[in-house]
């Protein structure tokens, strides 16, 4: 038996929104410790890894590890019916052929319940090592969203370079070149406005802007985003969910021939 109750159901809705443009069918893995997702886009160049600790839930019971195979467009349709302040309850039997979802609101006294058929999804799982990266940058997630959205008008590839000068985003296309430089900035009282750059050695990598823009769908989950880069390795773009979990995206760099 699996049963989980999340007072702020909106967190789960935002998690669904953060991955539904990258993948269609996904397994949510339930264990005694957490809910987690690992999946790749159809081109296998981007990977999403999500974790939400059992401590995020008001009630969490998982007798036996199980995978809930979900079609995200359908899940998203159901979450459209969830109110902003609703509590979410998930329930599944060990056989896991259907998932019960409940949205409760004490104020309005409403309880909505849905039964969703589950699917058996065969998905390739990758072992992602916990690497020490050469550059690690923390910045406001809204700022990162604005930069990758704005640069799309210049081209379809974004060069991200981390040097002593700061973190530079560049895009080149038919109309010319655009550069946006972020310097380290810890002046603000609010920590979430800080830009911190931790650089062991300079790194410069190219990425598809289309994917970087897909990743910014996670912006509502976290005021800050952490970018990690090493030469020749996929970039990690992490949105921490308070102290309770994260959504991490990995994207293969574009290599010059």
């Amino acid at each position: 038996m699996f049963e989980a109750r999340l007072a702020n159901g909106n967190i789960f809705k935002m998690i669904v929104e953060s991955i539904r443009e990258l993948v269609v069918d996904v397994n949510i893995d339930c264990s005694t410790e957490e809910l987690s997702i690992q999946c790749m886009d159809s081109a296998h160049v981007a990977l999403v890894s999500m974790s939400l600790s059992q401590s995020a839930f008001d009630h969490f019971r998982c007798d036996r590890s199980l995978s809930l195979g979900l079609n995200l467009p359908n899940v998203s349709k159901i979450f459209k019916m969830m109110g902003r302040d609703d509590t979410m309850v998930l329930k599944a039997e060990d056989s896991a052929d259907k998932l019960m979802l409940m949205f409760e609101n004490d104020k309005s006294g409403t309880i909505a319940d849905f039964e969703l058929k589950l699917m058996a999804i065969e998905a390739e799982q990758l072992g992602v090592p916990d690497t020490a990266y050469k550059c690690s940058i923390s910045m406001p997630s809204s700022e990162f969203q604005r930069i990758v959205r704005d640069l799309q008008v210049m081209g379809d590839t974004c060069k991200i370079s981390c040097t002593k000068e700061g973190l530079k985003f560049s895009a080149t296309g038919q109309i010319g070149t655009g550069n946006i430089l972020m310097r380290q900035n810890v002046a603000s009282e609010k920590e979430e406005d800080h830009v911190t750059i931790d650089m062991e050695e300079p790194v410069e990598l190219n990425f598809a802007l289309r994917y970087l823009n897909f990743f910014t769908k996670a912006t509502p989950l976290s005021p800050t985003v952490i970018l990690k880069m090493s030469p020749g390795l996929p970039i990690v773009i992490e949105y921490p969910i308070e102290q309770l979990g994260h959504v991490k995206y990995y994207l293969a760099p574009k290599m010059e021939e």
Partner: peptide, 14 residues
């Protein structure tokens, strides 16, 4: 001219 490898070339299959 760019090319992009799949993540399989960076990470091991589980």
């Amino acid at each position: 001219i760019f090319f992009q490898c799949t993540l399989r070339s960076y990470f091991q299959r589980k």
